[in-house]
Design a protein around this nucleic acid. Structure first.
Lengths: 341, 341
DNA sequence: CTGAAAGCGCTTACAG
DNA sequence: CTGAAAGCGCTTACAG
């Protein structure tokens, strides 16, 4: 059977409480020699504390949930971007003695159940829509600290971390303008007046304004953030926007699709049309031409998310404003000077 | 404070045990009207059972661990292949009312602790070396069912699921032979006489033997499964293997690197050298030329892994032999007839 | 520095 | 069909 605290206590001739103190590192409350003896016996008998018993008694689980949207019957679809963050979050948590419960959420209404069932000490929301986050209330979350990644929701209960999307888009667009481009197409998913895509659109517009380029409303194309939609968009570009000489796509995967679509339509990239993406996926350096894009600090996002969350868990300190991480432009081969004429 | 079983019992005027039966679906033991009343009150009060209390009392946690190697300070590096599997496993588990604890393992010696700490009902090993799996003993695993993905270890404690690596490699190589290639380079990580890479090597050799092609021992190159190593390998290929007209790489990411290396060295793919990969990552259809490769049934792997594991958890039925999933060749643009001369 | 008691929120036999 | 009691393996005040 399982080795318990009581077994160790009996073998060491001390009380359970003393063993508990040793195991939990409260060495101040135990004499040095007792600590030694108990630790030796723990190792000898291979004692592993029961996390569920501990959670139940201590009202703290050392468990953090990573909540990811997942249509009911669907697999968790983790983008490369979210996968990288997931890996980093697990590491940061592990370094601090916490564990990760990964859970797909089919409906935001499941969030409260997810938090309470395992008595999560905290949770990170990855990939939710701002409107979904907006609806999360104190009643739903209770006292459990929750933090959203990449959200612009004003919900103070979920204030978290994100990249400087505005500046990233501005950087990318300014780069195109510096190359002489004037008719630049904005390609991305449909957006409202708040959120990541909206911020990137604002950054895009700001760069145009900086250069005093008049804004042509027709230079926006809506597409899902998939390679497939990018291909379709790129293929019809010569017909729909014959004057456009550059495309700023809100995601690498979309940008890569656009490049392929353009290639299929016989439009050389970057000779005839330049393309810039956003994310700097590994993939972006593997395609032809290599994609110029905006790099995010993924490791920083994950580390900050965990730091903020655990600060809230341990000291009840909630961030008052979202942490914004710097981005940088990575120039590769998909952009060039605007063609003459 | 938290709503407990007792609160529901009080409100409904029944015993805790009756509520427990209703909540757990043992409706046979409770009258229909009691079931109704209790369920109404549960919904009204927003009762969520405590998973830790349940684990402690019932000795079953409904928690399954996904254990992934992770160097101590390192992030979990999830390959696209493993990410897809992870997503599918979460979904299969969720559909069955189980939860997923994702945990990086710095040293295989941590496995027992991982299993016991959270009283995992079972665990799936993803990405471990066969030698590490070989060393896992009954003493380490206890009575917890554990299952390895992509392992050829003979350890009966971890019998799991994998792809038909032998056939995949044979298919890929036979395809190259059919195109007239004779001098085919095998590129992959160093391997021992057991394991995924060894199986792929065996399949490669079998295809050559089928076609009565004499085996040239020098036609093997060792490289890590990274894009970078692929580039290096491809770039030096004209010098190191001037006669080779095709490369079979044991992973797409490596094959894609090889294609880039060849391109840098001025060798056209597939006109001068054909390249085949293994995995069929999304990425493989995005690069230029699109990669011909061997596709694995990732969803099938995940579903089978979860099915087998839960059968072991619930009925104590351990698989006697590993489940092997079919693979298929996906012909794209990176292979062509051997150049004349 | 050390300990006895109560309790965390459930489930499991055992009765009736 | 329903319930009272014991116990799962810990931690938390409270004493000493």
């Amino acid at each position: 059977m399982r080795v318990t605290l009581k077994d160790i206590a009996n073998a060491a001739g001390v009380s359970m409480m003393t063993v508990s103190n040793v195991v939990n590192g409260n060495h101040a409350r135990v004499s040095a020699e007792t600590v030694d003896r108990v630790q030796r016996i723990v190792a000898e008998l291979g004692y592993v504390p029961s996390a569920s018993a501990r959670s139940l008694a201590a009202r703290t689980s050392r468990l953090v949930g990573l909540l990811v949207p997942a249509a009911d019957e669907d697999s968790l679809t983790l983008s490369p971007h979210n996968t990288a963050i997931l890996g980093q979050i697990e590491r940061e948590l592990r370094k601090r003695g916490y564990h990760l419960l990964l859970r797909g959420i089919a409906d935001p209404a499941e969030v409260p159940e997810a938090l309470r069932s395992w008595s999560l000490d905290g949770a990170i929301l990855l990939g939710f829509l701002d409107e979904e986050i907006d609806r999360l209330s104190r009643g739903a979350l209770g006292r459990v600290p929750v933090l959203a990644i990449d959200s612009y929701s004003g919900n103070p209960l979920t204030t978290g971390v994100r990249s400087d999307d505005f500046t990233g888009a501005r950087l990318a667009t300014t780069h195109l303008i510096a190359l002489g481009h004037r008719a630049i197409l904005f390609a991305g998913p449909a957006f409202t007046d708040v959120g990541v895509v909206h911020e990137r659109f604002r950054g895009f517009r700001a760069a145009l304004a900086d250069a005093a380029i008049e804004w042509d409303e027709s230079l926006v194309e809506t597409a899902n953030t998939t390679h497939e939609d990018g291909v379709a968009l790129g293929a019809r570009l010569p017909g729909s926007h014959p004057h456009a000489t550059a495309v700023f796509a809100t995601a690498d995967i979309l940008a890569i699709g656009v490049m392929e679509g353009l290639a299929r339509a016989g439009v050389p990239v970057p000779a005839a049309v330049s393309v810039v993406g956003f994310d700097d996926l590994d993939l972006s350096a593997y395609v032809t031409p290599k994609l110029t894009t905006v790099a995010q600090d993924l490791a920083g996002k994950a580390a900050n998310a965990v730091d903020l969350l655990l600060a809230a868990v341990r000291h009840g300190k909630r961030p008052s404003a979202a942490v914004t991480l710097d981005v940088r432009l990575v120039e590769r081969e998909s952009t060039a000077r605007v063609p003459a004429g």
